[in-house]
Design a protein around this nucleic acid. Sequence first.
DNA 1: AGTCTGCTTGACGTGAACGTAAAGGTGAGG
DNA 2: CCTCACCTTTACGTTCACGTCAAGCAGACT
Lengths: 143, 143
Amino acid sequence: MGTGGLSLSRDDAAQPPAAADGVEPVFTITDLAREFAVTSRTLRFYEDEGLLHPLRRGTTRLYSRGDRARLAWILRGRAVGFSLADIRDLLDMYAPGKARRPQLEAALGKSRERISALMDQRAAIDATIAELEHFCRTIEQKL
Amino acid sequence: MGTGGLSLSRDDAAQPPAAADGVEPVFTITDLAREFAVTSRTLRFYEDEGLLHPLRRGTTRLYSRGDRARLAWILRGRAVGFSLADIRDLLDMYAPGKARRPQLEAALGKSRERISALMDQRAAIDATIAELEHFCRTIEQKL
DNA sequence: AGTCTGCTTGACGTGAACGTAAAGGTGAGG
DNA sequence: CCTCACCTTTACGTTCACGTCAAGCAGACT
């Protein structure tokens, strides 16, 4: 009994479950919150905003590997400055394989816009890094 | 009279003044707002927050070249995700040449932290670009 | 003199992204 | 049975970065 059941007792759920015997690992909200250094409030908020859709056992949320990967995507999107609405749109584009042609073309256009904006942003970052490094060298010389 | 005086009539002030005869060019708030595609409200807000300190003629703000360069810096900082408080701190570091040693060392530390955070951010951007490009290629194949 | 345009200072409103109680359900352990 | 730790929803509060009137002054054109 100790190893197989999806017990979700505190001892089991505290660490990301090790998936004994090929069972899909399942994460609690606090598992993911700790792993990604966000609060559980944030995860519930993302669900309200349609970014995550974990399963439920009763009222308790159960996050799959897919949810975990999705969360990683969300947080990286956030890190590059996307709004949550942006992220939801991008995730929606990724997901369904809606093979209707105009949909695909729209997705292609939006993606390319994003890419070019990100390249501009990277240029701004490079310039800022360069200036800060120059500033550092100036200080180092004064010491 | 037509060419030399710093008249600031509408016709003169509408375009960034051409600085006839080595006179420092001066910009009005709408000059800079238009040039950088922000609102005048934004410029006043940045002044309230201590990011800009334009001169005054009466109550009217007069922006110098230095103010213009400073604004460019602010907006690039904003573009890379800095908060206005972050930007103010960085500008304060740059400015005075306060050659007290502990100040310099603190500035050096903060700068290096910023640099490393920016490099992380750039890595996130590169990864996102790569994924979006892959996504684009996938779509293109379906067409 | 009157009007127009642009600049000024408050002061309140807004959207995004959560924070922070409040109030309650649920299962494991003593 | 009771407590404890963790989960839930509901709902109001907060910070940031401005937007949006409101009311008024100041110089230029008619």
